[in-house]
Design a protein around this nucleic acid. Structure first.
Length: 677
DNA sequence: GAGCAACGTGTTTTT
DNA sequence: CACGTTGCTC
């Protein structure tokens, strides 16, 4: 972004602060770490680090992690922080919540002791800094006379308050947002910030941007019609003067594999037509869906690039390496310490670590600080580990960053370890890549000259970078490749041709979201985002069978397809490939009956979405008992459930049933004892 | 304490 | 399916 700004503007951009809220808060906290009561070397915990930290805490405090699941504790803490609440401020309505608040307090103590901050803490700390330190606040209020916030609908309450503080000196604020593209409520985003903005900031002026310069008419019509189904919108209607363009293609496939096959075939045709690969995007609801697509693209030798998924800095070996680097920066970082104290294995087992944790608690010190207090063989091994860390710390002080990383990889034993591992080749490559990333990283973020800020070591700056960026931009630059990503990751981007796959109930909208209206509406906004990524050509695909969690599912077509306007659509059924012929009869049988009416009518809001199931039948009879999709049933062991799909007949008949308690199961109807309810 | 096999369990989206 | 946890053996 900085590069692009510099190229576009005739002014010097070096004084501008450009970044995510988290990035800017990090920067501010680095510059004022003393006022923020943080050590100069504070490290950032990503989601996984935070979870590990919580688990460690629960164990140390002897708290039952069955009763207080670490994930839930994590959500509680982050939720509170995003509302600007410290442990003391949390309103607890029952004993359970009171206990959670206590755990929150303990967790915060632990973080403070270790000199680490989680993502939400970056924001909250920075907010408190501005609030409590008038000189700092006034400095930034004077310094930033103009503030622009993009994707404003994705800001949370704390970010909003942070912004108000920062702009409190009368800065001109421009907020750009689209309430229909709010897709991060699940992590605390508050669309209400848009309305609050109009209320709270002086002389608000609202400019509606309704002319769309990106997508052709049919695509916009589809997007507009879909989003109409949401309630409580601020309201807008996109239009274009580019004409209708091509219809939106809706593609039905027999299986997820067949869908991928068809997509790849179509991509080959597009490329043959002269389209660039990087102008073609494959979007999906969840990362797991990329596998089939990747596999098929790979077989077809089409270059592709996957964004997101398991990201570079989140890979196991990279996290191990980062933990060593963190210990070199701050040996009292217990999270990092625990992660690698026995990796590679050095004879330090659970027993020794328990002794160490006890010693640390008694001496009120970090694990690193308590090593000398552990006796015996374990103690000797620990001392050896500390020796390695200290040698790396002091032996690399004046080396350039990439060399620090290289030395660490050798001295820690990571390289040696992965050389011996049979699947270690790729991991070694990633560790090499980490050295490259360090070399490519330039830590010359301009620090405010007016502040006598402590200069970050290049290593500390690199570690922040690793935590905040997670390696999204690691795409092979220059390579013309088809773009694969989740719809979330696609926001803000655009492509000539877009494929959205997996438009199936349970997947998109996701089954965890369909029970509540707010969840369903967020899914719909997600679909809206997906549609509006396309400039000229849009494909929407769904499959009759899909492999999920290792078992085949027979999903219903997504309700969102039924919400699109028929005149903007063109339905396509791919020719059946030889592989799929076996299942073809069944498929065509229902298509003849159920398909045409449903597709043409496209009710604006189907009262009860019953749809059909791909390879599955609408109804089935077994031993005189009739089962149908959507029917409520009861099972002796699993309790109440709803039939999601039916397949086969006679003794082969199976039903996929979603049970309220037991989850989704596939049962043989001839065997399972089901009673209709 | 290490390493392996069996088992169970959840499992969306992310700064 | 893919991960983590548990239990077992050496």
């Amino acid at each position: 972004m900085m590069t692009r700004m510099s190229a576009m503007l005739p002014i010097n951009t070096r004084g501008m602060w450009i970044g995510t809220f988290h990035g800017l808060c990090n920067r501010m906290l680095r510059a004022h770490h003393r006022d923020a009561h943080l050590p100069a070397t504070f490290q950032i915990l990503d989601v996984a680090d935070q979870l590990a930290s919580i688990k460690r805490l629960l164990k140390a405090a002897g708290i039952d992690d069955e009763k207080y699941p670490p994930k839930q504790v994590q959500n509680f803490i982050n939720g509170a922080k995003e509302e600007g609440l410290r442990a003391n401020d949390v309103e607890a309505h029952d004993g359970f919540q009171r206990r959670l608040a206590e755990i929150y307090a303990l967790y915060q103590d632990q973080c403070d002791r270790e000199g680490v901050v989680d993502f939400a803490e970056l924001l909250l700390r920075s907010y408190e800094l501005l609030q409590r330190h008038a000189p700092v606040r006034e400095h930034y209020q004077r310094r930033f006379r103009h503030i622009l916030v993009d994707e404003f609908q994705d800001t949370n309450r704390l970010q909003y308050r942070w912004l108000r503080l920062l702009a409190g000196g009368g800065a001109a604020v421009l907020a750009v947002g689209d309430d229909d593209q709010s897709i991060y409520a699940f992590r605390g985003a508050n669309v209400g910030n848009m309305a609050d903005f109009e209320r709270d900031f002086s002389h608000p002026e609202v400019i509606r941007l309704e002319q769309n310069y990106r997508s052709h008419g049919h695509i916009l019509d589809a997007a507009n019609a879909l989003i109409e189904n949401n309630e409580g919108r601020m309201g807008k209607n996109l239009w274009t003067d580019q004409g209708h363009g091509e219809p939106v293609r809706v593609v039905e496939s027999l299986s997820d594999a067949a869908e991928a096959q068809w997509v790849v075939g179509e991509i080959q045709a597009l490329i043959a037509d002269g389209k660039s690969r990087h102008e073609i995007a494959l979007l999906y609801r969840s990362n797991a869906q990329s596998r089939v697509l990747e596999h098929t693209l790979f077989s077809a030798k089409i270059p592709y690039k996957v964004y997101g998924g398991l990201r570079f800095f989140e890979r196991q070996e990279v996290k191990h390496a980062l933990a060593y680097l963190r210990l070199m920066e701050n040996p009292h970082d217990d999270t990092a310490f625990s992660r690698v104290v026995n990796f590679p294995a050095r004879g330090i087992g659970a027993r020794t670590l328990e002794n160490l944790a006890d010693a640390a608690r008694q001496g009120n010190t970090s694990l690193y600080g308590a090593v000398a207090r552990v006796a015996g063989k374990g103690g000797a091994n620990l001392a050896q580990f500390v020796g390695i860390i200290d040698r790396m710390r002091f032996g690399t002080q004046n080396l350039p960053l990439p060399e620090i990383v290289s030395v660490m990889l050798e001295d820690s034993g990571l390289t040696a370890h992965y050389k011996l591992e049979k699947e270690g080749a790729e991991r070694l490559e990633n560790l090499d890549e980490l050295v490259n990333a360090a070399a490519a990283f330039n830590a010359d973020e301009p620090v405010d000259p007016e502040l006598q800020a402590d200069v970050l070591t290049p290593l500390a700056a690199f570690l922040s970078h690793a935590a905040l960026e997670a390696g999204d931009n690691q795409a092979n630059e220059g390579q013309d490749a088809v773009q694969l990503m989740t719809i979330h990751a696609s926001k803000g981007l655009e492509f000539e041709a877009v494929f959205v796959t997996g438009l199936e109930e349970g997947l998109f909208p996701h089954e965890n979201s369909i029970l509540e209206q707010s969840g369903l509406e967020e899914e719909r906004r997600l679909m809206y985002v997906a549609i509006t990524r396309a400039r000229e050509r849009l494909y929407l695909g769904f499959a009759q069978t899909r492999m999920l969690h290792g078992q085949t599912r027979y999903p219903l077509r997504s309700r969102f397809l039924d919400e699109l306007p028929a005149p903007a659509l063109k339905w396509i059924t791919p020719k059946v490939s030889r592989v799929d012929e076996a299942s073809y009869d069944r498929a065509s049988a229902w298509r003849d009956s159920a398909w045409p009416e449903r597709t043409r009518s496209a009710p604006a809001r189907p009262a009860a979405h019953q749809g059909y199931a791909g390879g599955s039948q609408a109804g089935i009879e077994v031993d005189g008992q009739v089962f149908s999709i959507g029917q409520a049933v009861e099972h002796a062991r699993f309790g109440e459930g709803v039939i999601l799909a039916l397949q086969g007949s006679g003794t082969q008949a199976q039903a996929q049933i979603r049970f309220a308690q037991a989850g989704t199961k596939t049962l043989a109807l001839g065997v399972a004892k089901l009673t209709p309810r």
